[in-house]
Amino acid sequence: MTTWHENMTGWHKSTYTHWEENACVEVGTAPGLVGIRDTKQWALPDESRPILVLPAESFAALLEHLGR
């Protein structure tokens, strides 16, 4: 069984990351999906590192709602 970490590619820090607040998130993608994970958890093994996975349309709606 593959994990979300294996399916998601292109992980990068969000351009809206707040370094001074230590509020960093990374975004990755898979076909039709977007994954969001906490940068501070980089040392955890992938199988225990949580990822919030959303359909791409929902992620776009979230960004719009947040006033990207």
Score class of each variant (00 low, 15 high):
residue 26 E to W: 02
residue 46 D to Q: 14
residue 25 V to G: 04
residue 6 E to N: 09
residue 66 L to G: 15
residue 14 S to A: 08
residue 12 H to F: 07
residue 20 E to H: 11
residue 5 H to I: 00
residue 48 S to G: 11
residue 6 E to A: 11
residue 13 K to M: 06
residue 45 P to N: 12
residue 68 R to Q: 11
residue 4 W to Y: 13
residue 2 T to M: 10
residue 5 H to Y: 01
residue 32 G to K: 06
residue 67 G to E: 00
residue 68 R to F: 06
residue 52 L to F: 03
residue 46 D to N: 14
residue 9 T to K: 12
residue 23 A to P: 09
residue 62 L to E: 04
residue 30 A to F: 00
residue 47 E to L: 06
residue 2 T to P: 13
residue 2 T to R: 13
residue 64 E to F: 00
residue 19 W to K: 15
residue 61 A to S: 13
residue 68 R to K: 14
residue 49 R to L: 07
residue 58 S to K: 10
residue 6 E to I: 04
residue 60 A to M: 05
residue 37 R to P: 01
residue 58 S to G: 09
residue 11 W to V: 03
residue 30 A to Y: 03
residue 65 H to C: 06
residue 61 A to M: 08
residue 29 T to N: 12
residue 34 V to H: 03
residue 28 G to H: 04
residue 63 L to M: 12
residue 40 K to G: 11
residue 37 R to E: 01
residue 21 E to G: 14
residue 39 T to A: 12
residue 51 I to A: 03
residue 66 L to D: 13
residue 40 K to N: 13
residue 29 T to S: 14
residue 47 E to I: 04
residue 40 K to H: 11
residue 39 T to I: 07
residue 17 T to N: 15
residue 66 L to Q: 15
residue 14 S to P: 03
residue 30 A to P: 05
residue 14 S to V: 02
residue 6 E to W: 02
residue 26 E to N: 10
residue 51 I to K: 03
residue 58 S to Q: 13
residue 37 R to N: 03
residue 56 A to C: 08
residue 60 A to S: 10
residue 15 T to V: 10
residue 4 W to M: 12
residue 62 L to C: 05
residue 5 H to F: 01
residue 4 W to D: 12
residue 5 H to D: 01
residue 16 Y to N: 15
residue 66 L to I: 08
residue 58 S to R: 10
residue 27 V to C: 05
residue 53 V to M: 05
residue 43 A to D: 14
residue 51 I to S: 03
residue 32 G to V: 02
residue 6 E to L: 07
residue 27 V to A: 04
residue 27 V to T: 06
residue 62 L to M: 08
residue 54 L to W: 00
residue 36 I to Y: 00
residue 16 Y to C: 11
